[in-house]
């Protein structure tokens, strides 16, 4: 069904996409008369009605949201989590503020303090005395996660973060360190 003019294609840029065999033939027929178009309108209407009735007989595809939740992918970027070493229980964060520097929304505030032998909080020399993320400003880009040299901060899976007060959306270190409620299902392999 190749109706492409060979000379025309030769003169074109070689890199240009060649329609090749994908040319769709368009047949122009005379416009249908009144009786024919009336018949066509009738048939198409009935066909449309049959289509919607087919949907009517199917079960709905709605996800009943608060009860059912769409599972998220493993790399979904939800609410942040701060981590501890599993063996020693010390915080991974050393208060270097690289996350705060990387943050484009400027929503992370870190105040570092020195570790002392009596009060040892993190594995490094210093620790984050204050670690706050203002989630009403956060854009969930994940740059903090990338900037962190110790994998101390990662993006979790939680996305239900609405609250009644803006001040409640400033998450402190204790909140970020705490194990979050299992609110979001994780998508299984191949799902």
């Amino acid at each position: 069904m190749s109706t492409v003019d060979e000379n025309a294609t030769a003169s074109l840029n070689v890199n240009a996409w060649s329609p090749g065999e994908d040319v769709i033939e368009v047949r122009r027929t005379p416009a249908p008369g009144p009786s024919r178009s009336a018949w066509r309108i009738f048939v198409e209407t009935v066909r449309g009605m049959a289509t919607t009735f087919g949907r009517f007989r199917e079960t709905p595809v709605t996800v009943q949201y608060p009860e059912e939740k769409t599972p998220v992918y493993p790399r979904f970027r939800g609410r942040h989590k701060l981590h501890r070493f599993e063996d020693t229980g010390l915080e991974k964060c050393v208060g270097c503020s690289l996350c705060a520097a990387a943050c484009p929304a400027d929503c992370i505030r870190v105040v570092a303090a020195e570790n002392t032998p009596e009060n040892r909080v993190s594995a490094g020399e210093r620790y984050a005395a204050v670690y706050e993320i203002n989630l009403s400003r956060c854009i969930f880009c994940g740059y903090c996660e990338i900037a962190c040299p110790f994998d101390a901060i990662t993006m979790g899976h939680d996305y239900e973060l609405s609250d009644y007060d803006r001040t409640d959306l400033i998450f402190t270190k204790e909140m970020l360190l705490a194990e979050p409620l299992e609110r979001t299902p994780l998508r299984n392999e191949g799902e």
């Binding site: 919607t52 009735f53 949907r55 009517f56 199917e58 709905p60 595809v61 709605t62 009943q64």
Partner: peptide, 10 residues
């Protein structure tokens, strides 16, 4: 309800 079912929702 029916409009919902016609559009594959509840």
């Amino acid at each position: 309800k029916l409009l919902g079912r016609f559009q594959s929702r509840y």
